[in-house]
Design a protein around this nucleic acid. Structure first.
Lengths: 129, 129
DNA sequence: AAACTGTATTATGAATAATAGTACAGTTAA
DNA sequence: TTAACTGTACTATTATTCATAATACAGTTT
């Protein structure tokens, strides 16, 4: 499903959260699709089930998945969240990162193109290719 | 000089790195300007000198400051770095964050405006106002 | 020489991350 | 009902990281 960097200073459960968020946002994992069970993913990745659960709990609290006891964990549809705090937080992070990118000499035009491309591939994802 | 959130899960030295980077990128701290000494800043913020030094070391490795033994730590000019790895890393982070922002429903247009505004305030910083 | 600077080292306590093991509750299918 | 799944919760243990404390040393400035 994906690879983890066991040597990274970034905790495994955080890496898991990132990777799964990406899969959801890129619609590799589709709405209401079932995720691997805690134990199955733990076995596949050779890590502890508790670590998977910690990641799933975080994903649930961020609104990306929902879990039903006895059934499994599933991708949350419509994450067009009205969570204002979350949006403010992302905007702030974005501001920091864009500022740094510009400071490092990355042209504004290049960043804008990045945004446009991502936006296009997102909206245009409905078509069959 | 700034405030730290001692209750945050984010390490103090990382908060320091972020804050100082912002001050440098926003040209509050100007090229070759001297930073507070390790001990002075530690006293001012009521934290351990080792923590300050850890932050300064990180800032130096990221190319934002340079330190001279016996003299002090100073803001590095021309951080128009040719450090390709750093640039690639920032681009990747940017991609992740923009994707998340779009996914949360923030309009591409709003992100683009953010980039343009930051770029303008950066390039226009040369004038006297 | 005195008072600054950065830098390095060792030790200690607290918090976090990851593991291991066990247990319980809800679902599904035989 | 039973068996095999699911998520969830809890305790305990180990390793790592964070922050502190206390020194120490080297270079600079006055």
């Amino acid at each position: 499903m994906f690879e983890l960097d066991m040597r990274s200073r970034k905790p495994i459960y955080e890496q898991l959260v990132e990777k799964i968020k990406e899969l959801i946002m890129n619609e590799v994992l589709k709405a209401d699709e079932q995720l691997p069970s805690v134990r199955a993913l733990a076995t596949e990745l050779t890590i502890n089930p508790n670590t998977i659960q910690k990641a799933y709990r975080e994903l649930e609290s961020q609104g990306f998945i929902y879990s039903i006891k006895g059934k499994g964990s599933f991708v949350n549809p419509n994450n067009q969240t009205r969570d204002i705090e979350k949006i403010q937080s992302v905007k702030k992070d974005l501001e920091k990162l864009v500022l740094e990118a510009l400071y490092l000499g990355i042209p504004a035009q290049e960043i804008i193109k990045l945004v446009q491309d991502l936006d296009a591939s997102k909206g245009g994802g409905e078509s069959h290719d």
